[in-house]
Structures are given as structure tokens and as C-alpha cells.
Amino acid sequence: MENITQAITLVPINHYILFSTIIFIIGIIGVLTRRNAIIVFMSIELMLNAVNLLLAAFSAYRGDASGQIFVFFIMAVAAAEVAVGLAIIVMTYRNTNSIDINFLNKLKN
């Protein structure tokens, strides 16, 4: 166990922040530029994962286990969100024969 502990000491926390930021931005760009509702959902998953990784990195950095518990809760919320969201997508497809998100602007009427 001591060998593992010593091996992890060399990556700066800044690089973890930078990496998570890049993944998060890729998720934002995916949400903004795609029209397929499933790809938009996958981009949201990417953003959630970026936040998860940063929480785990800070948890190891500060020596506090609460960060990893938060990761656990975020995964639970993401699973519930995906189940409900995919049900909505299936229902939309059944009613309109399309999963184009621009098609959904008829909700406002």
C-alpha cells in the first residue's frame, strides 16, 4: 500500500483542473451544436463525469473522503436522470417520429 501512496504524488492539481475543464467544455459544445437529443444527453453525461473526476481529485488532494461520497451521489442522480430522460425521448419519438430537439419547441403552445 505504501508503494501505491508514493506513486501518486507527481501530478499537479492544476493539470486535473485543466483536464476536467476541457472535458466539460467539450460537453458544452456538444449540447450547443448537436440536434440529436441522444447526443445531447451523452454530452451531459460527459459534463457530469468531468465534475466527478475533479471531485475525486480534490478528495485525494485534501485527504477528505466526502468528495468521493459526492461522486457516488452524482452517479445516482445521473442514473435517475438518464432513465427519465430516455423515457421522454422514447415518448417523443413515438408521438412525433423524430428526436430533433428543435421539434420540441411546440411544447410552448
Partner: peptide, 28 residues
């Protein structure tokens, strides 16, 4: 920011199931 410190594990068994379970079922 300042030049950042590397990630150093002060407490190696923080991510193991035993420790996480204790935190999860007490504080959370």
C-alpha cells in the same frame, strides 16, 4: 493561481470500501 502542489495522498486508504462505507453511513 500560484504554482500548484502535486496531488499527494496523505491517507492512502481513503478510497477503499471500508473507509467510504463508514463515512457514507455516518455523516451522509
Amino acid at each position: 493561481l500560484q504554482q500548484s502542489n502535486p496531488v499527494k495522498l496523505n491517507n492512502a486508504d481513503i478510497g477503499l470500501v471500508k473507509n467510504l462505507g463508514k463515512v457514507l453511513f455516518n455523516e451522509f
